[in-house]
């Protein structure tokens, strides 16, 4: 299984899924992202690392325009999804977010049944047929590797699941609207080690069908799961590259200091 993936990864000429160009972001007078120009490859896992407050989560949220929710945010430069500027005025944010899904730090199922949690997204986007919804729910739960654990209790409140199961449910919920990109904001930081491993395995599996961008404060995790890594510091993108190379031979002194634990 692992081998086939590896082969496919080697053979596949990874296209660019997301590109940012001279991206600046200001929270009021705070310059939170400085001049970020980067390409994120399709069907790969890209890890964003850096110390707290370095802008990695902020950068992640620019990719599905979740920053729009905070007041007084100003953005200059461009973010392009498949070559189209997602900050262009004619962009429908709801449609954008359907294509770019997100999983948050705290597992946060909606206060409804497991089934309804997954069906929520498709229903929002107009899906009404019961049979089709059933199919999507099963497929999404399978995709998030939690189907076997919940298939007999779909009508139970999702909040009864364990923390790790809740997080995989949230991933399934994000998958249910059939996104192309999955953004994950420290998805395992609230989980126990066993659940973390499960979630990481899932992430590796997901890259076959999705482009995954994950923020992590855990460098071991970045090393374990990601193909590419971006290192942020004080709102700047210090270094980007294939994870193995970046960790093995960082080009920048600050990257080296961070990954060897000198600060952060």
């Amino acid at each position: 299984m692992g081998l086939t993936w590896a082969n496919r990864m080697c053979k596949k000429k990874s296209g660019v899924k997301i590109r940012t160009e001279r991206l600046h972001l200001y929270y009021g007078s705070v310059h939170a992202l400085r001049d970020i120009t980067i390409e994120i490859a399709a069907n790969r896992i890209t890890a964003l690392i850096g110390p707290s407050g370095c802008g990695k989560s902020t950068f992640l949220k620019t990719l599905n325009r979740m920053n729009d929710l905070a007041g007084n945010v100003r953005i200059t430069g461009g973010v392009y999804l498949d070559g189209r500027d997602i900050y262009a005025p004619q962009i429908d944010v709801a449609k954008l977010r359907k294509r770019v899904g997100m999983v948050f730090q705290q597992p946060n199922p909606f206060p409804m049944s497991i089934y309804e949690n997954i069906a929520y997204g498709p229903k929002i986007h107009g899906m009404r047929q019961k049979g089709e919804l059933d199919r999507i729910v099963e497929e999404s739960l399978r995709g998030a590797a939690i189907w076997d654990e919940v298939k007999n209790r779909l009508d139970e409140p999702a909040l009864r699941l364990s923390g790790g199961q809740q997080q995989r449910l949230c991933i399934a919920r994000a998958l249910a609207v059939q996104p192309e990109v999955l953004l994950m904001d420290e998805p395992t930081s609230a989980l126990d080690p066993a659940s973390t491993i499960k979630t990481e395995e899932l992430m590796k599996k997901l890259r076959t069908d999705y482009t995954v961008v994950v923020v992590t404060h855990n460098m071991q995790q970045a090393l374990r799961v990601s193909d590419d890594t971006l290192f942020f510091l004080n709102g700047e993108l210090v270094e980007a590259g294939q994870t193995k190379e970046l960790f093995l031979a960082p080009a920048d002194r600050r990257t080296q200091d961070y990954i060897t634990g000198k600060f952060g």
């Binding site: 929710l69 899904g101 948050f104 997204g121």
Partner: peptide, 28 residues
């Protein structure tokens, strides 16, 4: 929790859909 609202919005729900389908049920 703000993240609950954000999760709904991140699925492409509008603010009104989020309020009536997630926020109010959560505050029931």
């Amino acid at each position: 929790p703000a993240e609950l609202k954000a999760s709904s919005l991140a699925l492409g729900a509008s603010q009104m859909q989020t309020i009536f389908k997630v926020v109010i049920p959560a505050a029931k």
